[in-house]
Simulated assay, not measured.
Amino acid sequence: MSRFSIPIYQPELAGNEKLYVNECLDTSWISSRGRFVGEFETQFAKRIDVQHAASVCNGTVALHLALLALGIGPGDEVIVPTLTYIASVNAIAYTGATPIFVDSLLDTWQIDPEDVRRHISPRTRAIMPVHLYGQACDMEALMQIAQEHRLFVIEDCAEAFGTYYKGRHVGTFGDISTFSFFGNKTITTGEGGMVVSNDKTLIERSRHLKGQGLAAHREYWHDVVGYNYRMTNIQAAIGLAQLEQASRFIERKRAIAAQYATKLAKLPVQTHQEAAGTIHSYWMCSILVERAEQRDALRAHLADAGIETRPLFYPAHTMPMHSKNYRKHPVAEDLAWRGINLPSFPALTDAQIDTVCASIASFYQHGR
C-alpha cells in the first residue's frame, strides 16, 4: 500500500480492458497470437499516421530491435541526449555500439541539434532523439543534419504518445521509431512497446528478429539469431482498449498541465512549457526550482503532505558505466538537478491539483 495519497502516476483502466482480456481468457488466445495483436498494431499505426507497426514486449526491446533493424553494431556510434531514461542508452550498448552523449536545450529540455553537429565523427551511424516528457524535439533541424551526414534517425517516443511537431505525430520523421506502454505511460499494456516505420523492409526485419528469427516459409527453421520480443494477445487487448480512450487521456493531461502553469505562476518555479509549433502531450508535468539545493527539500515537503514526486532523470554521462570519458553537459546537468515531476495521471482531480499547488506554495511561504 502506497504511503502517498496523491501518487505520481496510476493507469486508468475503465474502458473495455476487462472485456477484451476476458475474451483472451475465454478463447485461450493468451500468448503472442490472437486477434488483438494485429488489431492493436493496425489501430496504433492509423492513430499516429505511420504505415507499419510491430508490437513488442516492452519499450526497451523496441529500441534494441530498431537499432538491429538498421544494422547498428560494434564500431558504430549513436548520438543520444544524456538527459534521457537509461533505456535509450542501454539499447545502444546492447548492440555493441557506443553511445555518444550530447547536451539539451534549456527552453525545451530536448536534444540540442548544434551539439549533435559538434559530436559527429566518421564512426557516427545514427542520431537518437528522445522526445522527453512529452515535448517534441526539433525534428526539422535534426533531419537536416541527418541528411547532410547520411545518418539514420531513431526516434525514441517512449514518453511522447500524443505529441506533435509541426502537425505530424512524433515517430513519423525518422527512419524507425519506438514507443513504450509501461504502466505509467499515457496508454499502457502493463509492459509493452511498438516499433513503427514507413519503411516496410525495416519493419519486416524487426518482425523477423522479434520472433526468434523464424523463417517466413519453413516451419521451425531459424535463419538468424533472433529474440523473443513478442507482445502477448492479453497485452494487446489492454492496449487496444487504452487506445480507444487515448484522446480523453491526452486532453485531460494537457488540462492538468495548464492548471499547474496557472496556479504556480506566482511562485519561484518554472513549468515545462509547450514549444512553438508543437503539441506537448505532457506525459509528465514537470517543474524547475530556482536552485538545485531546493529540489530535494521541496520533494520531502511534498512527501510529508502525501504527494509523490520524481526527480528528472540523472544524465546518463554521470552514471558509473558511462563516466570513463566524463565531460560536462551543463544544460542537462542543470535541468536534472533542478527538475521535479509532479502527479499527472488522467484521473487526477482538480482538488488534488489544488492540494499539490498549495503544498508547493507553503514550502516557499516558509522561506525555503
Rank of each mutant, 00 (worst) to 15 (best):
H64W: 08
Y164F: 15
C157I: 08
L83W: 02
L106V: 14
Q110W: 06
L67W: 02
L70F: 07
L132V: 13
D115A: 04
G134F: 11
I111K: 00
R150L: 12
C57H: 11
F152D: 03
L142R: 03
A87K: 11
I154E: 01
D103Y: 08
H64V: 13
A69F: 02
P74V: 10
V153F: 02
Y94I: 10
C57A: 09
T98Q: 13
C157A: 13
S121H: 11
R123Y: 14
H64I: 12
R168D: 07
D107E: 15
L105C: 15
E77D: 07
F152H: 14
I145C: 03
V89R: 04
A62H: 06
Y165S: 08
G96N: 06
D76W: 01
Y133I: 14
S88M: 05
V78I: 10
W109I: 05
W109D: 06
A66E: 01
H149C: 02
Y164G: 00
V130H: 13
A91S: 15
E77V: 01
I86D: 10
Q110D: 06
C157W: 08
V130F: 15
V102E: 07
T95A: 07
L68M: 14
E114S: 03
R117Q: 05
A160H: 05
A66G: 11
T60P: 09
A158G: 15
G162C: 08
Q144V: 09
D103C: 09
G162P: 03
T84A: 15
Y164M: 15
L63S: 07
V102A: 06
A66H: 01
Y164V: 12
A97I: 06
A146L: 05
I127E: 04
E77H: 03
A146N: 00
T82P: 00
C157L: 09
E140H: 14
H119D: 07
E77T: 02
